[in-house]
Design a protein around this nucleic acid. Structure first.
Lengths: 215, 215
DNA sequence: GACGAAGTTGAGGACATCCTCAAATAGAGA
DNA sequence: TCTCTATTTGAGGATGTCCTCAACTTCGTC
């Protein structure tokens, strides 16, 4: 019954003094690091506190339980996503499909270091589908806007479909570049090539023969 | 220090009587189901035993610890992969790139139900990178062989790269089709289209204008 | 300096899970 | 039937983690 946990706990208990604000900042940073390394379940409150050079009691002063830490991290990540996609749309207006493909791919790659903690959390908890879907929807909406901004002629349903494919390509690229990924060296460039081919075919049909639109 | 756990425990303790063999089979099946539902960490020995209608002591008679169960499941999955890719290579010889794209995608989709437990395990344990990479390498080799069988002219390093991209496309398709995936309805077909476009460009260049081989 | 609120500390309660083990039972072969 | 071994059973030990709480310290304000 912890599926609604994210609504039960109102993030960190607001600190009132400067020392408290610093504590909370340190704790959040430590939590992100530990969760990224070990996953959410395996990350222990004790280790999070230790990494922030705090005692376990201090951790529990500001975060009533483990889920509250997760909530705080999520709120942080959601804000980052929002601002980044806003910035993207401005540049999507007059871009070629190939350029847009690069922009989208590079965006997630750039965001990756800050988003790693989030990914670790969403991966390690099966019962977080609601939160996961909120993030997914937010990201898909951002991509879709970029797509239709670039190619206003794209149909609505089709834009959804293309956005879904693009999101997966972006995720794949992040996975390939990620630290412990034993991918073959040329794979990222291949992925980029495929993405460009695809977006060109979808957003500027007729330029590449447009072919094979359906089996 | 449980990273070498897979080599410490020699799978299930071999049962000697028919009733024992049935127990082991039931336990493995139950373990696969529970791990798939809850993830490896959250799956408890008690629940696995209960689902197999066995007592906890019976579970520990055949599997000395939790990791032994994981090992048994992995061995099972590896065997499935091996036979399936062998079957694939026979059909890859005289296939168009588009047909090969379909074959590869449909293969993982077909395997998905049996592979779900494996995926759940590899996802929930950070310290399983060695095993994860063994599976990844095995699958990549299978894809690579299919690719070079279909297009003998493909270079060796390039085949590795293309295989990596294809594997990710296959995984993405599985994710899209999977039960709790809120993907837009046309997305799977879009992914298939992209995969076909890409393989055609790589394996039969010159047929689609070959274009944009590099930026 | 005195007061009260904010923040610190760490032992330990509550609970869940992995795993053990000794006694009981079932089944195959002599 | 008798014996020996495979298998079952389930209470409970060992361990680890989340979280509590009451005593203590620090800091801003009057």
């Amino acid at each position: 019954m912890s599926s609604t946990s994210s609504s039960r706990n109102r993030g960190p208990l607001a600190p009132q003094r400067e020392v408290g604000r610093q504590r909370v900042a340190d704790l959040i940073e430590a939590a992100a690091a530990v969760i990224q390394e070990r996953g959410f379940e395996a990350a222990t409150m004790a280790e999070i506190a230790a990494r922030a050079e705090a005692k376990i009691g201090s951790l529990y002063r500001f975060f009533p339980n483990k889920d509250a830490i997760a909530d705080a991290l999520m709120a942080h990540q959601a804000e980052i996503l929002r601002t980044e996609y806003d910035a993207l749309h401005a540049r999507a207006a007059d871009a070629t499909p190939e350029a847009l493909a690069d922009m989208l791919i590079d965006l997630l790659v750039k965001l990756h270091p800050q988003t790693q903690g989030l990914a670790a959390m969403l991966d390690s908890r099966t019962d977080w589908t609601a939160v996961r879907q909120r993030f997914r929807a937010q990201t898909l909406a951002g991509i879709k806007t970029a797509l239709t901004t670039c190619a206003p002629g794209l149909g609505d349903a089709e834009a959804d479909d293309v956005a879904a494919v693009m999101l997966n390509n972006m995720k794949t690229m992040v996975g390939m570049i990620s630290k412990d990924a034993p991918t073959s060296p040329g794979a990222p460039e291949e992925l980029r090539l495929m993405t460009r081919l695809y977006l060109a075919a979808k957003l500027a049909p007729g330029r590449l023969g447009g072919g094979a639109a359906q089996a």
